[in-house]
Every structure is written in structure tokens, then in C-alpha cells.
Amino acid sequence: MNSIKTIIANVIAIYRRELQSYFASPFAYIIAGVFWLLSGFFFVAILMGPEGLIAQAALRDQMGITTPPVDVAYQFLSYFLGILGSLALFILPMLSMGLYAEERKRGTLELLATSPLTNWVVALGKLLGVVTFFLTMVLPLLIYQAIALSAANPPAPITVMLLGHAGLILMAAAILSLGMFISSLTDSTILAAILTFGLILLLWVVDLVATSIGGGLGDALGHLSLIKNYTTLTQGILDTSSLIVFLSYILLGIFLTAQSIEAFRFQRS
């Protein structure tokens, strides 16, 4: 009982410190700013650009095409979430790169490692912190989407919107968890960012590789693909296997991080 309370208190302590350091870092604001700028640009381009969805729908109306009916809101959501997913690919390694590399460089890992905390408590607290920061980056986007989609007819599919964004956060958590592991392997933040980017690019396109391999192995590899599982969710399909894949990545990342910190302490010379 008491120990569970202690564990939760420790996770919260690490979480708060991590989150606080993002909000105190000018670098994090720059990343958030770029993310908001780009996502805002794509929002306008997809919806209201010359080739945008509204222009296309208007064109169809003019030409008198009524079947099949277009659901602009639904189409918009799946496009826009796809773009957000791709943006996240570039943004997330920059958020996760410092999680452990900075601690190693500053020597604060020695403080954490000699405090009565287990490695996975530290890893979990850090992951929750960085995921929360990404969540605060996504929340403002939800507001302007809600405003735009409230005008949609047929009405915007609210479940697709929520599920899609939940999928985005879940995928981000999976990427950040793996990024955290890579960050724990080095004390260079730049190296951590590059390696993380390489790894998630690989996981992003692994279904292309899978299709070319084919067979049972290809099938298995296909399930690991981030984009495939993410697209399932952004289409509004609550697929348990996709959730399990993302959760597995998250747990794997935390587990590997805890192991690598343990190994780092045991092998350092």
C-alpha cells in the first residue's frame, strides 16, 4: 500500500520536473511554434486552398455531381491527421532527444541513480512528462478544428476526430518512448535525435518493406508499421490490435530504457 503510494509520488515528482523543464526551455517553445505554424498552414491549405477540399466540393456542386456524396469533414480529418502524423515524425525526436542524454551530460543521472527510485519509475515519469508536453502542442489544434468543423454539413464525425487525435497522441507516445531509450544510450542529444529519426522512419515505412517480402514474415512486419496502425485510427476505426501495437512500443521503450540505465551503471569504466 505504502510502497505503491511512494511509487506514484516518485513518478509524479519526475513527471513534474520533466514537464517544468520543457516549459522553461526556449528550445521547446521554438519546436511548438514551428509545429503550430506548419499545422496551421496545412489546415488552411487542405481546407481552403485553391485545390482544397472546399474548392473541390464546390466544383462538384457546380458540375452537378451528387453521387457519391462527399463528406468534407471526414475527408479533411483523415488528410489533416495524416499531415500531423508526418510532422510529428520530425518534431518528436527533438522532444525526446534530451530526456536522458541531457541528464548524462549534466551529471544529474548520478543524482537520480543514487536516490531511492527505480529506473522504470524515472523512465515512466519522464515519458509522461514529454507526452504531456506534446499533448499541450496538439490541444490548440483541436480548438480551431472544432470551430471549422462545427460548420460542416453533414455534421463532423466527432468520434473520428477524437479517436484520430487519441491515435496521434498514442503514436507519439510510442515514438517518444523509443526515442527515450535511444536518448539513454548516449550523452549526445544530436546523436540521439538523428538515431531516433532513423528508427521511426524505418518503423514508418516498414509496411512497404513488408509488402515486398510478403508471406508470414511480411505480414508480421506489416503489423509493426507505425503509419498503418495510425491510419487505422485516423479513419475512425477502433482497432484493438493497433492499440496493442502502440502500447507494446511504449512498454518496450520504458523497459529498454530501464535496462540500458542499469547496464550503463554496471559497465561504465
Binding site: 516518485n10 515528482a13 520536473r17 523543464s21 522553461a24 549534466r106 544529474t108 543521472l109 537520480l112
Partner: peptide, 18 residues
């Protein structure tokens, strides 16, 4: 082992907590 982005008091509170 110090976090540069924390205040002295905030840091000591953090250490006390962990």
C-alpha cells in the same frame, strides 16, 4: 548534479521529494 533550469528552492524541493 544540478538542473540549471530550476530555481534553488524548486530543485531542493524536487530532491526532497525523490
Amino acid at each position: 548534479p544540478l538542473y540549471g533550469d530550476m530555481t534553488v528552492e524548486g530543485f531542493l524541493h524536487f530532491v526532497a521529494r525523490i
